[in-house]
Amino acid sequence: MISGTIIKGIGGFYYVDTGEHVYECRARGRFRKDKIIPLVGDIVDIEINDSSKQGYILNIHERRNQLQRPLVANIDQVIIVFAIKRPDINIGLLEKFLVYSEYVGVNVVVCLNKIDLDENNEVQPIIDMLSSVPYDYICTSSLKNIGIDELKNKLKGKVSVFAGPSGAGKSSLLNSISPGLSLKTGDLSRKTERGTHTTRHAELIKLISGGMVVDTPGFTSFDLVDIKEEELQYLFPEFQKHVNCRYPSCMHYKEPECGVKKALEKGNINPMRYEHYIQMLCDLMKNRRY
Rank of each mutant, 00 (worst) to 15 (best):
V110E: 09
L112E: 12
K114I: 05
V109A: 05
L117M: 14
S132D: 08
V106Y: 09
S101C: 15
Q124W: 05
S132C: 05
E95G: 02
V104G: 06
D116G: 06
I126V: 15
Y100C: 01
L112S: 12
K96S: 02
L117V: 04
Y100P: 00
V106K: 07
N120M: 07
C111G: 04
N113M: 01
Y103K: 11
K114V: 05
K96G: 01
P125H: 04
K114A: 05
N107H: 07
G105N: 14
V106R: 07
Y100F: 08
N113T: 01
Q124I: 15
E119C: 00
L98G: 05
M129N: 10
E122T: 07
I126D: 03
S132T: 03
N113A: 02
V123H: 14
I127Q: 10
D116R: 06
I115W: 11
S101G: 13
V109E: 03
E102G: 13
F97S: 00
M129I: 03
V123F: 08
L112N: 11
L130R: 10
N121R: 14
V109P: 01
V106E: 09
V106D: 09
S101K: 02
K96H: 01
V123E: 11
E102M: 14
S131Q: 12
D116Y: 05
P125S: 05
V108T: 15
F97Y: 15
D118E: 11
N121W: 04
V123S: 07
I126M: 04
